[in-house]
């Protein structure tokens, strides 16, 4: 059971308080009607599914009920960082620094 730091509660809590919410930084297009089927399918279904550093969302469903972002290594399952929704994707250097 993972130990997850909720950036809103600022506490490490066990995984069963949280619900995984898929890849992060996939922004819903502002005007979907202008997109062709390929681009729309990309938004709906295509995922990085990264082996390694993965950007993902979690939902503190049995806590503060906030969605937030996380960077996690999918090979070791270790969290590198979590951050609030709306913040930009951390740069690679930032992640490398934390991993150190």
């Amino acid at each position: 059971m993972l130990l997850i730091k909720c950036p809103y509660c600022e506490e490490e809590r066990p995984e069963i308080e949280f619900s995984y919410a898929g890849e992060a930084h996939i922004v819903r297009p502002t005007d979907p009607s202008k997109m062709d089927d390929t681009a729309w399918a990309e938004y709906l279904f295509i995922r990085d599914n990264t082996r390694g550093v993965h950007y993902e969302r979690w939902y503190h469903i049995h806590g503060c009920a906030r969605f937030f972002n996380a960077v996690r290594d999918t090979i070791s399952d270790k969290f590198i960082m979590t951050y609030k929704m709306g913040l930009p994707r951390p740069a690679d250097v930032e992640i490398a620094k934390v991993k150190e």
């Binding site: 995984y20 993902e56 996690r72 999918t74 399952d77």
Partner: peptide, 13 residues
């Protein structure tokens, strides 16, 4: 498990 992983390692719960 609920999250993406390549670890071939699952949780007790």
């Amino acid at each position: 498990d609920q999250y993406i992983s390549y670890s071939q390692r699952g949780a007790l719960h």
